[in-house]
């Protein structure tokens, strides 16, 4: 019993770590983007100020589904983050860091947000949710094909298992071992994070920030926390699957920062796709390359 409580406490610690890490990274990356545009940029802790400010404001409610959905989204995402391994040895629930756990649990948060946004009754929110789910449908397919290839090669679906397989030298880092799959995964990750070319479901100028259109004050603050932790989960998944995980926390921070910063730089120079362009894009080349990579790696056995 005490062990389970310890584990839960540890997991909450991981979620808090993820929140702090990603919020700081977000601020630093805003600064980097500002420097690219010859601006001074905000303070590096600006995102913390934003979130705490939102939590200090008064909020309007649009019915209990609206409020409950926000809490469900935040709870679902914190629950997912609790299972995330930070290094190969720092895992809250050992043996439960399975890739599929993340795939299923992250849907709880997404569905909570979809439910709450639809509960606000704003048509733009419904459009945003519809677009978010469509985008999800588009990027999940190629990403899943690549991850299945990795699982087939390593013979395990545990994240630490996959990371250890890369660290011990059974395989190169999968970004080298499966180059085509890596490119596909980068594109899918940009879709997951909602970065620029696949930002269709946020689209501030077009559908007024989509699902978040009716949120203000505390609910928006909670959604921001949820968003930061979601990004933490997705980027760490990527680090563990393709960059060989991390032996120490320092290595994890470095890898995390590089992945997130590079994605941010790429997204800062791109425009925004329309929703049909997003779907056709993901179902055309990334899916093709993912399948080709799977054939090469599994059928022919050519792994670098």
């Amino acid at each position: 019993m005490i062990e389970i409580l310890m584990n839960i406490g540890f997991g909450l610690g991981v979620a808090t770590f993820g929140f702090v890490l990603q919020t700081a990274m977000g601020g630093i990356n805003r600064k980097i983007a500002a420097r690219l545009q010859k601006r001074r940029g905000p303070k590096w802790y600006q995102e913390f100020i934003d979130i705490f400010k939102l939590l200090s404001k008064r909020a309007t409610s649009h019915g209990w589904i609206f409020d409950f959905g926000v809490i469900m989204a935040l709870g679902g995402i914190i629950g997912t983050a609790m299972f995330m391994p930070i290094t190969s040895s720092i895992v809250a629930f050992e043996g439960y860091d399975n890739f599929f756990i993340f795939v299923y649990l992250i849907a709880v948060g997404m569905l909570g947000m979809a439910m709450s946004a639809s509960g606000s009754g704003n048509p733009l929110a419904s459009i945003g949710v519809m677009r978010a789910l469509t985008t999800m449908l588009a990027y999940e397919v190629p990403f899943m094909v690549v991850v299945m290839t990795i699982i087939k090669l390593t013979g395990t679906s545990s994240l630490t298992g996959i990371a250890v397989a890369q660290q011990t030298g059974d395989f190169n880092w999968f970004m080298i071992a499966l180059p085509l799959g890596f490119i596909v995964a980068v594109m899918s990750l940009m879709g997951m994070l909602g970065k620029k070319p696949f930002e269709t479901y946020i689209a501030p100028a077009e559908i007024a920030s989509g699902p978040m259109v009716e949120y203000g004050g505390k609910q928006l603050g909670m959604l921001f926390i949820m968003h930061e932790i979601t990004i933490f989960i997705e980027v760490s998944l990527f680090v563990h699957l393709f960059l060989g995980g991390a032996e120490t926390i320092i290595m994890f921070l470095i890898k995390y920062f590089i992945v997130y910063a590079v994605l941010n730089l790429v997204s800062n120079v791109l425009g925004r796709f329309k929703i049909d362009q997003v779907v056709t894009f993901f179902f055309k080349w990334p899916l093709f390359f993912a399948v080709v990579q799977a054939m090469i790696a599994i059928h022919l056995g050519w792994v670098i």
Partner: peptide, 10 residues
């Protein structure tokens, strides 16, 4: 943005 100000959609 260095004052922490930014545009918002709604």
């Amino acid at each position: 943005e260095r004052l922490g100000m930014g545009p918002m959609a709604t």
